[in-house]
C-alpha cells in the first residue's frame, strides 16, 4: 500500500506542473499588463517610468521561466502577489473566500451522502416498484434542472414566499442550506441513478446467489455484502464531483450573493486578473487531484480485491 501511495503521489507532480504551466501561460499571454493596471489604479496618468518601476518592484521584469518560478514558489511561501481585482494580496483573498466555498461544497456533499444512499438502496431493494419508478422520474428531472434556476426557485419559494430564509446570505450554517441544496440536487439525482445501477449489478453476482443459499436474508445481503461492493464507482464519482462542485459553486455564489472562491474566480476572469485566476485554478486542481487520490484510497480500503487486481499493494 505504501508503494502505491508513493507511486500515486509522484504521478501527481507532472499533472500539477502541467496545470501550473498552462495557468502561468494564461497569465503571460493574457494581454493585460498587471504593472500598468496597478500603476494606473494609484494614478490614472501614470508615466511609463512609474509603470516600469512597479514592474520591477513586482518582479515582472524577468524572463518567463524566472517569473514562472517566482509565481509557483508562492504555493510554498504563500506569496502569490497582488490581486488587480481587489488590490489585496491574493493569499489574503484566498484565505477569506476559500473557507466559504469549502463550507458550501462540504454541505452539498453532506446532502448528497445523506439523501442519495438511502434512496438508491431503497430503489435497488424494491426494484421496479412504484417507489423505484417515481424516484427514477424525479431523478431524471433533477439531473436536467439548471442549478441557477433551482437556486432562484428555492429563493422565491422558501425565502420570499415562505419567509423561512432570508434572500441575503445569513451568517452561520443557515446561510449555506439553500445554496448547498440547490448545488447538490443534480449531483444527488445523478448519484441515486448510478448507485442504484451499481447495486443492481452487484445483486446479480454469483456471491449474492450463494449468500441466499447460505441462508442470509435479502436485507442482510444488501447491507452487509452488496452495499460495500457497489460503493467504488460511487466513491470515484463522488470525489470527482468535489472539483465540479467547487467550480459550480461560482453560479450558486452569484445567485445567493455569497463571496466565495467561485465568484472570486469569475470576477478575476472578468477583470482579466490572470494571476488571481491562475492561482485559484491551480488550487482547485490540487483539491481535485487530492479528492481523487482519497477516493482511490477509500476504494482500496472498502474493496481490497481492487489492489489485488492491480497487484500493486
Amino acid at each position: 500500500m505504501k508503494r502505491y501511495i508513493i507511486k500515486r503521489a509522484i504521478s501527481f507532480i507532472p499533472v500539477l506542473i502541467g496545470v501550473s504551466i498552462l495557468c502561468f501561460l494564461l497569465i503571460a499571454f493574457s494581454g493585460k499588463d498587471p504593472a500598468e493596471v496597478i500603476a494606473r489604479h494609484g494614478d490614472m496618468n501614470a508615466t511609463p517610468e512609474l509603470i516600469e518601476q512597479v514592474r520591477v518592484e513586482m518582479g515582472l521584469d524577468g524572463s518567463l521561466p524566472e517569473r514562472y518560478l517566482k509565481w509557483i514558489s508562492g504555493f510554498f511561501t504563500g506569496d502569490f502577489g497582488l490581486s488587480i481585482t481587489s488590490y489585496r494580496l491574493i493569499s489574503e483573498d484566498i484565505a477569506e473566500y476559500f473557507p466559504i466555498t469549502a463550507g458550501l461544497v462540504g454541505m452539498s456533499l453532506l446532502w448528497t451522502l445523506v439523501l442519495s444512499i438511502p434512496f438508491a438502496l431503497l430503489c435497488a431493494r424494491f426494484k421496479n416498484s412504484i417507489f423505484d419508478h417515481l424516484t427514477r422520474g424525479i431523478t431524471i428531472f433533477g439531473m436536467c434542472i439548471p442549478t441557477f434556476w433551482l437556486g432562484f426557485m428555492l429563493l422565491i419559494v422558501l425565502a420570499v414566499q415562505m419567509n423561512w430564509f432570508t434572500v441575503l446570505p445569513e451568517p452561520g450554517i443557515k446561510g449555506y442550506i439553500l445554496p448547498s441544496l440547490a448545488l447538490s440536487i443534480p449531483t444527488i439525482c445523478g448519484i441515486i441513478r448510478l448507485f442504484r445501477s451499481s447495486l443492481l449489478s452487484e445483486l446479480s453476482c454469483d456471491y449474492v446467489r450463494y449468500a441466499k443459499a447460505r441462508g442470509l436474508s435479502s436485507t442482510r445481503i444488501l447491507l452487509c455484502h452488496v452495499f460495500r461492493n457497489a460503493l467504488p464507482p460511487i466513491v470515484t464519482v463522488f470525489c470527482q464531483y468535489l472539483g465540479t462542485l467547487i467550480v459550480g459553486s461560482a453560479v450558486m455564489e452569484a445567485v445567493f450573493s455569497i463571496e466565495g472562491i467561485g465568484s472570486y474566480l469569475i470576477s478575476a476572469v472578468l477583470s482579466a486578473d490572470s494571476t488571481s485566476a491562475a492561482t485559484c485554478i491551480v488550487i482547485i486542481a490540487v483539491v481535485f487531484i487530492a479528492a481523487n487520490f482519497v477516493g482511490d484510497m477509500i476504494n482500496r480500503f472498502l474493496c481490497p480485491w481492487i489492489a489485488g487486481e492491480h497487484n500493486d499493494t
Partner: peptide
Amino acid sequence: IAFIPQNPMTALDPSM
C-alpha cells in the same frame, strides 16, 4: 441443506 455453486472463484463476497 447446503449448496456448492459452480464457480468457487465468484461464490464468496470478494471484500469480506
